[in-house]
Amino acid sequence: MAHSNNNNPNILSPHIAPMATYLKVAGALFALTFLTVIAHQFKAQLGMFASAVAFLIALIKASLVVLWFMHLKDDNNMNRAIFGSAFAFLFLLWVLTELDIITRVFESSPL
């Protein structure tokens, strides 16, 4: 985000994250990728939680990318709202479509 520390709006003074931050985030992403594969090896033991674990890890990874690599952490609220609204409307699409399909009376399908 371009913070105008000075009063001249023609000079951009962006917030530049230090290299160490990028390295830490990348390291965390690699570690989480390994973790998700390790968890996959214990799929049988985890049972129904296996997919929950996999998606939780994916969610954390996605948040790291969004907040630090895409700098939404330092961005303004409007851009955060724009990003969030995509998920809100996908949720709407999913809920109302499932509302139909879940309440349908299925004839027995050979498939």
Binding site: F89, L92, L96, L99, D100, I101, I102, T103, R104, V105
Partner: peptide, 22 residues
């Protein structure tokens, strides 16, 4: 406008429940 699309589908095989909600 995003909550109402199912009214195009009342006779398409959509469930009655969804039909009433829409």
């Amino acid at each position: 406008s995003f909550f109402v699309w199912g009214h195009h589908m009342f006779v398409s095989g959509q469930s009655e429940t969804a039909g009433i909600v829409f």
